[in-house]
Simulated scan of single mutants.
Amino acid sequence: MADAEPLPLAFANHLARDRRRSAHTVRAYQATAERLLAFLRGHWGGEVGRAELAKVSAADLRAYLAARRGEGLTNVSAARELSAVRGFLKFAGGGDIEMPRVRGPRVKKGVPRPVSPQEAMALAEEASEDAAEPWIAARDWAVLLLLYGAGMRIGEAVGLTGAVLPLGETLRVTGKRGKTRIVPLLPQVREAVEAYAAQTPWGVSKDAPLFRGAKGGPLPPGAIRKAVRKARAHLGLSERTTPHALRHSFATHLLGRGADLRALQELLGHASLSSTQIYTQVDAAHLLDVYRNAHPRA
């Protein structure tokens, strides 16, 4: 009996309805599913349905990734593609198929540098996609966006209470030594936090932690670190890609766009300007590396 709707569309509807994934992720994963089916039809020379997808081998997936890399896919994008493929195969098999073991591409390790915007978003998406429950996926996505999109420390993010809701364009954050600061919130960050708050089974109250652990207690920072470790392994990212690296990336990317050091100091909650000045060194090192790789005379 044929499926009532094409598998990629059914997968997309599952992600949007059951997993509460962002529209961007749904579109990207549906496109990956469509590309995989098109490749397998040519690779095997026939139509591909659920029964055929259950027989996909590691060799088939390596051939697919090789074809995609031939189209110019970067290491991070290829690793993300493999993650989407795994999700699609798991969905198509009803969670009962044995997943082919394929190692994702490794990202070349070089000098210390900030996580790129593409890598930061891929990391957040991968961590949330691997969550056990949709509300946990929404939680991890929201916390990681607070680190990268608002430059918060992980302790500051998990320490938020329900009193911060409803969110506005800024958020008052209490940092080290009880120092408070105001950080702007991008619309995407506000939407992520609000989506989590709407899904959490523990409810939200002003005097209780906003982010909860799986059993309802305060969310320990270790749970986010564990999700990031697993996600970066899937994506082939460096071990330097930690939750705190997302905060570093927030600072470096702002500085690269012309942010003033004093303003950056306030956004990060640094007690002294000397703590913020390290980002000028990181940014200069990154620019020098780009120059050496791109300039014909370098």
Rank of each mutant, 00 (worst) to 15 (best):
R101W: 05
R101L: 11
G104C: 04
P105K: 12
P105Q: 11
R106N: 03
V107P: 00
V107S: 13
K108W: 06
K108I: 12
K108A: 14
K109Y: 04
K109D: 02
G110D: 09
R113S: 07
P114M: 10
S116N: 10
S116V: 11
Q118I: 15
E119W: 02
A120T: 04
D130V: 11
A131E: 04
E133L: 13
I136L: 15
I136T: 13
R139Q: 05
R139E: 02
W141C: 01
W141F: 14
A142H: 05
A150C: 08
R153G: 01
R153L: 07
I154C: 02
E156A: 07
E156F: 05
A157Q: 01
G159Y: 07
L160R: 00
L160Q: 00
T161M: 10
T161L: 10
V164S: 03
L165C: 09
L167C: 03
G168E: 12
G168I: 12
G168V: 13
G168W: 11
T174K: 13
K179P: 02
R181L: 04
P184Y: 13
L185S: 04
L186F: 12
P187E: 11
Q188N: 13
Q188L: 14
R190F: 06
R190L: 08
E194W: 07
E194T: 10
A195T: 15
A198I: 09
Q199I: 09
Q199L: 15
T200C: 08
T200Y: 10
G203L: 08
V204E: 00
V204S: 05
K206C: 10
D207T: 13
P209I: 09
F211S: 04
